[in-house]
């Protein structure tokens, strides 16, 4: 726990001194194990103009176990579950693929990268993935609408 806290504090300081594009972080209270995250929708994506709130939870035995990332803001995306959990499917966050040397900054950058370029082959929402692949215009329309409606 102490080890985890030290590492998290260090990572927080690193991100503070080296801001990530389109990503805002704010640990909740003094508890460094839970962070509020804000992602701004990338310019060339249907999520442009939106601000997405996420919740980052770091396990007690971080970095040996991966962080958990969930969308608080509803989003129309093949890799984010369309339920109240808003779980994000990110390869490196699977516990069998996680490596302790992976940092929160990299996780957040990848999450934002996924907004720019969804990965329909590793989707949690099959029907959205299908739409993304075969009817992109229709996908983008709904994604834009949801962004307008939920991500203000």
């Amino acid at each position: 726990m102490a080890t985890a806290q030290r590492r998290i504090t260090r990572e927080y300081a690193e991100i503070q001194s080296n801001q990530l594009e389109g990503v805002k972080i704010a640990p909740i209270d003094n508890d460094m194990f839970k962070w509020n995250i804000e992602l701004t929708g990338p310019k060339d994506s249907p999520y442009a103009g939106g601000t997405f709130k996420l919740f980052l939870t770091l396990p007690d035995n971080y970095p040996f176990k991966p962080p958990i990332l969930s969308f608080q803001t509803k989003i129309y995306h093949p890799n984010v579950s369309n339920d109240d959990k808003g779980s994000m499917c990110l390869g490196i966050l699977r516990s069998d693929a996680w490596k302790p040397s992976c940092k929160i900054a990299a996780v957040l950058e990848m999450a934002r990268g996924l907004l720019l370029e969804p990965n329909p082959d590793d989707a949690v929402e099959g029907s959205i993935a299908e739409e993304y692949k075969s009817r992109k215009a229709s996908f983008e329309k709904t994604a834009k609408e949801w962004t307008k409606q939920y991500a203000k």
């Binding site: 030290r6 590492r7 260090r10 990572e11 690193e14 302790p100 040397s101 940092k103």
Partner: peptide, 10 residues
């Protein structure tokens, strides 16, 4: 030598 450990980052 001195090394930056990739796990504790120290």
């Amino acid at each position: 030598g001195t090394y930056d450990c990739g796990i504790c980052l120290e």
